[in-house]
């Protein structure tokens, strides 16, 4: 799930200031904590109040979309409202905001959230935690299932660094676990310190530094197979 945090109300208001009619779109997809119809409604009320203090009337409508990051779902949901509103405020993560700008391209969509990270909900720790950074080169097979990219403040491949004290990380005032000590403990537990000892060379960052896309293969032909058979 994508973990988001709502922007400061003043920041959102500054973005929509030029408009008098806005559509506020929640997202029922994976974003957490929930940013659905109720949250969209509350945001509308807050913005209306804020506008009132400036002597302005703000017309708004709250809707929610099953998944803003899916072009077909988002387009069919939002289309009926587009002619009546001057701008959209999205409560989705950045993916949703970009997608809304693409599919509803007659007006601008503004973000109400900061997208924090792709994370998990770890109820036992009462936390949303970033366990994976979708870095494009998964190391979990050699690190005992603990990610040193998401879990280590320095993204080290050969940690720990000198900043770990009693198993905690120097970043965050020694309150969070040091990923590399966790990795060490996991690998020791499973008698796989050979993996810990092994040097990991520098990563190939190309997958993480240029805009990524994967083409989904939508076609299939049996022509090649037929040709092969004919050759036989």
């Amino acid at each position: 799930m994508i973990i988001t945090q709502q922007k400061d109300i003043n920041e959102i208001y500054e973005m929509i200031k030029p408009y008098s009619k806005i559509l506020i779109a929640g997202c029922d997809g994976c974003n957490q904590p929930p940013r659905s119809i109720n949250e969209a409604k509350v945001l509308g009320q807050l913005l209306e109040l804020k506008a009132k203090t400036e002597g302005k009337a703000l017309i708004w409508k709250a809707i929610t979309i099953l998944r803003q990051c899916d072009d077909r779902i988002a387009a069919t949901t939002v289309r009926p409202f587009l002619d009546d509103y001057e701008a959209i405020v999205s409560l989705a993560c950045g993916l949703g905001v970009v997608m809304m700008n693409k599919i509803a391209d007659k007006i601008l969509t503004y973000p109400a959230q900061n997208s924090m990270f792709g994370g998990v909900q770890n109820a036992s720790e009462n936390d949303f935690i970033q366990y994976c950074e979708t870095c494009g080169d998964c190391l979990l097979g050699v690190t005992g299932g603990v990610c040193p990219i998401a879990g280590c403040a320095k993204h080290l491949n050969n940690g720990p660094c000198g900043g770990t004290v009693d198993g905690l990380c120097e970043v965050g005032g020694y309150t969070r676990p040091c990923a590399w000590i966790e990795i060490y403990k996991r690998l020791k537990k499973f008698d796989r310190l050979d993996l810990f000892t092994k040097y990991r060379p520098a990563r190939d960052y190309r997958s993480a530094t240029s805009p990524s896309f994967i083409v989904i293969n939508k076609t299939y032909t049996n022509e090649e197979e037929k040709k092969k058979e004919e050759k036989k």
Binding site: A153, N157, N158, G159, C161, Y205
Partner: peptide, 21 residues
């Protein structure tokens, strides 16, 4: 030491390669 500990805390640290690399 991480930039978060320093006097320009908002900086983006690099760590492209680690010290072993």
């Amino acid at each position: 030491d991480h930039t978060a500990l320093g006097d320009n805390k908002k900086a983006r640290p690099v760590y492209d390669i680690d010290s072993t690399q």
